[in-house]
Structure formats: structure tokens, C-alpha cells
Amino acid sequence: MNDDFYIGWETSAAPRIGKFVRAVVLILFVASISLALAFAMVQRSIGVSVFEWGMVKNFSGVLKLEPYPHLLVPRPGATGTQNNFSTYYLVAPFKFGLDRKKLSTLDGKLVSLQGTLIYRGNQTMVEALPDSIKAADAESPMLTGEETIQLGRQTLTGEIVDSKCFFGVMNPGQLLPHRACAIRCISGGIPPVLLVRQTNGTAICLLLVSPAGQPVNQQVLDLVAEPVQITGEVERQDELLILRADPKTILRIK
């Protein structure tokens, strides 16, 4: 009869037990690496987005506070037609939007500011240092391209995300694991956007506002990170796609 017995405080285990344990340890090492690689490879939620953390840059452009603070930066060589301006959403550090009341005197004026660039696809945002936003000495350029184009009433299905995280501060910055963060960000004033996945896989983002064009942050908190259906008026302001909808009519898709 094999009467091997393991005692931990002895110098070494019985040969048969030692051989068995070495095999188990080898399996653990192989399983550890294999599972790590497998879990890493099958991740599906990580997209292509950038937050230039630690790289503070200077920006200048026309500050617009409605519906959410954004900066219109004249494009070099603009000819006065549509999209003469690049649009940068503006947010504050951490999970806060910019204080619109404090900036009200600068609305529509040329400003300079310092901040960190965030971008995903054609969506761009600047995490601005609030105290750096100052009126520029130069005169504001003519906002010739900033007319609103109505795109009609539409029903869209997607997910409400906080624009700051989704555009790049966190990657992935969407879906249920990120829900609590998105709720805190939107509660703190970060613009909520409806993320709509098109059938070809590409995503479009629509800034959510009330029918009157006012922020709806507090009204959509319970609907964040879930599949929802929203019916409203879609319009384009330069590069911004805006969805005007009554938050009470947003449907949660089970």
C-alpha cells in the first residue's frame, strides 16, 4: 500500500507527492498564461479613442455655451462655406461640465484656453482648465458656417453615454460596467450623447437636449448605459449632431 503522507513543516515532500504537485504546479502555470491570453483576446468593448493625458495644449476659438459649452475653431483656409469651424466639446476636469454661468459673459466671443485633447473618430473634446479660459484680444471671426440644418423627426435606438468618457477619457467608456461612472459624469454636467450603432458597425453620436434646446442631464440619469429608443428632431450645427427630444418619451428597450 502506498502510505505517502505530506507534512508541510518537513523539508521536502515524499517523492510521489512531490512529483504529483510539480505536475499540478505546471498545469497552474500553463492555465494561468492561457486564461490570461484568452480573456485578453476576446475583449470586445475596447474601441479606438484617445485622451492626451498630461499633454496640456493651447486652444483658441469662439466659445458657444448652447446647448452645451463648445469651442468653434476656425479651420485654416476656410472659405466661408459650411464647416468652416472645427467643433470641440468643452468640459471641466474630472466628472464635471464647465460652469455656464461663470462663462456667460464670454458666450459668442473669441477666447483662448488651455486643455487636454480627447477624441474618438470625428468627435473632439477638450478638457479645459476652467481658470485658463479668457477673452482673446482679437476680434471674433464671423460665424458664417454655423447655421442649423434640420434633418427631420427621427426615431433612433442606442445607448446614452457620457461624452467625455466615451470620446476617450476611458476606454471602454460605455456599457453597463461603466454605467455608474457615466451617471456621475452626466450628473456633473458632462454632455449626454446618444450612441447609435449603424448596421455597418460605425457609430454616430447625437447630443441630447430638450425640445427647447436645454440640457437634460438630470432627466436621463436613470436611462444611461441601457438600450433606449428616442424619438425627436435631429439637427446639425456644424459638426454637432443634436437630438431634441422630451426625456419623458425615452423608451427603455427590454
Partner: peptide, 15 residues
């Protein structure tokens, strides 16, 4: 190390 390296290589934009 394996999880971190594989994720960073396969998804370089992950934060």
C-alpha cells in the same frame, strides 16, 4: 503580465 501585455498589444487604445 500576460493579460496586460496581450490587451495592450491587441487593443493599444485601452486606458
Amino acid at each position: 503580465l500576460a493579460f496586460g501585455a496581450a490587451t495592450k498589444v491587441l487593443f493599444p487604445f485601452v486606458t
